[in-house]
């Protein structure tokens, strides 16, 4: 019975948007979509019962030059976990904010991702630092950010007798 529900949802989405779908189990769905459809797809899914945005995350595809933004949505009524994925350009990472759809829940996730990956969420009015304090380096969770080098350059002195070993 539930399996039918999952298939129904996927068919519904496929008819409305240009997406790539996968059904892993009766409670687990994966959907890939275009960046342009973000707001429409999100508000549509929200109206379909996916009321809870349980997490947002980023995958950093360095070689491909893309960030993959992932939204994990949970539906209380159908008991289905749906993962929305979209790829955005790594050089100029901007994406619309889903703040207006899921409220403060989305806002805090977007703040975190803005801080750690430097992604701009257009429409989010508060992207102030969340975890870091007095940080002026590059966004720290990018794959090409080498924290060992950064720490060495920032906190150790090459001229110092004890600390110069870090450069060897």
């Amino acid at each position: 019975m539930k399996k039918a529900k999952a298939v129904e949802i996927i068919e519904d989405i496929e008819s409305k948007f240009k997406v790539e779908c996968r059904i892993q189990g009766e409670q687990r769905l994966w959907v890939k979509f275009d960046k342009g459809d973000l707001m429409d797809a999100c508000s549509y899914l929200h109206s379909k019962g996916f009321e809870h945005l349980s997490a947002m995350s980023i995958t950093d595809w360095v070689k491909e030059g893309k960030y993959e933004v992932t939204y994990h949505l949970w539906s209380y009524s159908n008991k289905i976990l749906l993962t929305l994925k979209t790829k955005i350009n790594r050089k100029n990472p901007t994406i619309g904010s889903v703040d207006s759809i899921w409220g403060g829940n989305a806002q805090i996730h977007e703040r975190e991702l803005h801080e750690f990956f430097g992604i701009k969420f257009e429409g989010n009015n508060d992207l102030s630092p969340l975890f870091l304090e007095d940080w002026d380096g590059p966004p720290p969770f990018r794959k090409d950010f080498n924290w060992r080098e950064y720490v060495r350059d920032e906190y150790y002195d090459k001229q110092n007798e004890r600390e110069k070993g870090y450069w060897d």
Binding site: G104, D126, S128
Partner: peptide, 14 residues
């Protein structure tokens, strides 16, 4: 319950 949660706004830093 969920609707109520939605109404609550997160306070901005300003």
């Amino acid at each position: 319950m969920i609707n109520k949660m939605k109404e609550r706004k997160v306070t901005g830093i300003s």
